[in-house]
Amino acid sequence: MIALLTRDLKLATRAGGGFGLGLAFFLIVVILVPFSVGPESGLLSDIAPGVLWLGALLACLLSLDRILALDWEDGTLDLVATSPLPLEGVVTIKALAHWLTTGLPMVIAAPLFGLLLNLPQPGYFWLVLSLAIGTPALSVVGTFGAALTVGLKRGGLLLSLLVLPLYVPTLIFGAELARRGADGQATTTPLLMLAGITFGVIALLPFASALVLRVNLR
């Protein structure tokens, strides 16, 4: 499993592997927002938590079809499936690799992007915390979507349509947590809900992902 993880990370970080694509997209969203809504700093700091979350989510969505598609095309997936490794473990590793290459960099870069959007001082801690807790759920749900559409020729659009409603709870609680943190309001409820969703998703969804992957490999 460790070998699979290091292999995925190596592939992703190599030139053309798509590492940094998500981060670049995130940066583009954050830079373009002030141009579209106006440079007024009060307005920007109001919407900053939401924009940062939305940017992170879209960047994540953009990179989802890479999780399994390449391995599917060159037959690696068939090999991995016949190996003694349980498929549930494989999809978990895939999700983890995706999070390490897209989610984690975004969590680290988020405070920097927060500066661009004039995020209020107390918001930084909560923004990083909410992204750190929420983005793993995005990766795991995304892996499920990728497993559903892996056999399709042009699955990209379908993948987005399928994953979009599944992202809603995470987005609501994540953005709410960041917003409340920035406003200095009580943060316990969204924090607990966000953490609950993430842990629940990590615990249960790999079984569904493995199930659909098995169907697709049949």
């Binding site: 809603v168 709870p169 609501i172 809900m193 969703i197």
Partner: peptide, 10 residues
């Protein structure tokens, strides 16, 4: 169902 609760909360 999760979304329903999330949206209610929101």
């Amino acid at each position: 169902i999760l979304s329903r609760y999330a949206v209610n909360f929101w």
